[in-house]
Nucleic acid binder design. Structure first.
Length: 310
RNA sequence: CGCGGGGUGGAGCAGUCUGGUAGCUCAUCGGGCUCAUAACCCGAAGGUCAUGUGGUUCAAAUCCCAUCCCCGCAA
């Protein structure tokens, strides 16, 4: 089939690779290159880099809804449109172009976690299970009819980044099944139940700020959910301390240590008191100006016992 | 040329402002003690203090200059 593929970050890469391997004729639409990193180097999105390797033509209109985007789409005249974490809303005109409509690969079990960063929010909320849903895109935000779903178990210590990478691959598999079913004309289609719908927003830098008045489990889930981006942090001696990894401990602190108080040493590890009186072990951190490292190593040079994280 | 922090034995840090013998915690090696331990005690080895055969100085990890590398913020 002639497929217009709209995607931007890593999440979309396995899907694109799969479509290419399946022999479809492709045209890739992705976001414009952006200035990334410390010295603002213009960097191509992951999907563009992948497409170039596979020698698939790439189109980067500022706005797919704009004249340029719509014209490019029409000129290609695709049978089908596929989106995976594209990052732009499609217009009704866009959606009218492909003869078989538009399939979206979404990183949650819809209608839950509609919107941006569904994988991260699922981890932050401590979900034991999330999944991939393919749906028929309509003009709403992830509101279209559900095609296929596959549940994915979330490991209790898994980070959003790890889960994201796994789900990108699973997303490609579900997309493959969806398209195969479509080609056979055997694609189930079920409207979403709006009553069960939840919507999540994009993550912001501040979402990484830890609140030790929350239960240890909630803090742990937050740390996992914002790893690798925006990254969890707390303030120590007025400076931000990044917290990469934590581990739930059985240590309870009946003593009147306040939330955020640290104890432990390089032998035992670094523990911080949380709202439910349980201690959370910080296993991997990053000091200002430094690289990420084992918390135990850091304690060799900077004992933190008795100090407070805010 | 966006703003800022940093590079000190194998690891993590102090020392730099106020130049004057290279320090701490751990790891390593040797010895001791203990029924035993992530224990404890004694001792040892290990560093051109990122680079420049740069500048200033009687004297530079420390002050000045240049270069390289790492990191945070902002985008």
């Amino acid at each position: 089939m002639k497929i217009a593929f709209l995607g931007t970050p890593e999440f979309a890469v396995p899907s694109l690779t799969m479509l290419h391997a399946a022999g479809h004729t492709l045209l890739v639409f992705t976001q414009p290159d952006k200035q990334i990193g410390r010295h603002a180097v213009l960097t191509a999105p992951a999907v563009k880099q992948c497409a170039q390797k596979l020698l698939i033509p790439v189109c980067q209109p500022q706005k797919i809804r704009g004249e340029e985007g719509q014209a490019a789409l029409k000129a290609f005249a695709p049978d089908l449109m596929v989106t995976a974490a594209f990052g732009q809303i499609l217009s009704a005109e866009n959606l009218a172009v492909p003869t078989h409509g538009c399939i979206n690969v979404h990183g949650s079990l819809l209608p839950k976690y509609r919107g941006a960063a569904p994988i991260q929010w699922a981890v932050i909320n401590g979900e034991a299970e999330t999944g991939i849903t393919t749906m028929l895109t309509d003009v709403g935000l992830d509101t279209g009819d559900i095609l296929l779903k596959r549940a994915v178990a979330v490991d209790a210590d898994e980070t959003a980044g790890e889960l994201y990478d796994r789900m990108a691959v699973i997303g490609a598999e579900v997309l493959k099944e969806t398209i195969e079913a479509l080609e056979k004309g055997a694609l189930p289609q079920k409207p979403q139940n709006p009553a069960e719908a939840t919507t999540c927003r994009m993550l912001k830098k501040e979402d990484g700020k830890l609140d030790f008045s929350q239960p240890a489990l909630a803090v742990h889930n937050r740390v996992r959910g914002v790893n690798p981006w925006p990254g969890a942090y707390a303030f120590w001696r007025e400076l931000p301390l990044k917290i990469w990894r934590t581990k739930l401990s059985d240590v309870h602190t009946e003593t009147s240590l306040s939330c955020g108080s640290c104890f432990g040493d390089a032998k035992r590890g670094l523990f911080v008191c949380c709202g439910d009186g349980r201690a959370l072990e910080i296993t991997e951190l990053q000091a200002p100006g430094g690289k990420r490292m084992q918390a135990r190593s850091y304690l060799l040079g900077k004992p933190m016992s008795g100090e407070r994280l805010i």
